[in-house]
């Protein structure tokens, strides 16, 4: 309500206070000191590599840090990402005669790249949406593409909805029945002055066909 007025006419006035006030201040100093120390210790243990203390108290640290004080500062560390991971999708369309046709692969990451090209202020929808959705999918699925828990299910739905937003519910007037998603990983070629071998062929991770339901159709219009 009332703003801070910045009047701080007293300085070192704690000594001038009555005994009860000084006790209150002393308690305040103790509480705030302990709180700040605990907070910093928790954040430190959270960002530090797993160690004897953080392993033993991992539950307490997790309780404290998540969800609001989560942080990850391994920026381009220990090594920067050295691969371009492109997420691509294709659709199966239902024809008027009941027969299905499959579209070509659409490179959705390349679309992001084109939107970022010569853009001083790339949007999170171009730089983070698909890229991080795919990270989320990869992180919540096992090698057999089985979802791990609720997060796995959510990540599938998220990727599917991003794909449907970009492909559209229909193509050439024909409804999309199923979609398939794959990732294409290409290593960045080593620098010309390096004697490392040039990158090998791209690697593919191809998911199964997903039937499209109305729950997979986002309605974000203002793209």
């Amino acid at each position: 309500m009332e703003a801070d007025d910045g009047r701080n006419e007293r300085s070192g006035s704690v000594a001038g206070l009555s005994l009860p006030s000084r006790v209150a201040v002393a308690i305040g100093v103790a509480v705030v000191t302990v709180a700040a120390a605990v907070h910093l210790a928790m954040v430190f243990l959270h960002v530090a590599p797993p160690n004897v203390v953080s392993k033993e108290h991992s539950a307490a640290i997790g309780d404290y840090i998540y969800p609001e004080f989560e942080q990850n500062w391994k920026l381009f560390a220990p090594n920067p990402l050295q691969q371009n991971i492109a997420v691509q999708a294709r659709a199966e369309l239902r024809g008027a005669d009941g027969r299905s046709t499959v579209t070509q692969w659409f490179d959705l990451s390349a679309q992001d790249g084109a939107a970022i090209h010569h853009n001083p202020f790339p949007s999170h929808t171009q730089q983070n949406e698909l890229r991080r959705a795919w990270d989320f999918y990869v992180g919540s699925h096992d090698a057999k593409e089985q979802p791990m828990g609720m997060r796995g299910e959510l990540s599938e739905q998220y990727v599917r909805r991003i794909v449907m937003l970009r492909l559209g519910a229909e193509r050439d007037g024909r409804p999309v029945e199923r979609v398939q998603v794959r990732s294409v990983t290409r290593s960045v070629a080593p620098p010309p002055w390096s004697d490392e071998k040039a990158a090998t062929k791209p690697t593919y991770r191809v998911l199964g066909w997903w039937p499209v339901t109305t729950a997979d159709l986002p309605e974000a219009k203002n793209r």
């Binding site: 381009f76 090594n79 920067p80 990402l81 050295q82 371009n84 492109a86 990451s109 390349a110 992001d112 790249g113 970022i116 090209h117 010569h118 853009n119 001083p120 790339p122 730089q127 890229r131 960045v188 070629a189």
Partner: peptide
């Protein structure tokens, strides 16, 4: 390497 990532090369 980051300078060659498509997502970070405007």
């Amino acid at each position: 390497y980051p300078l060659h990532l498509d997502y970070f090369a405007p």
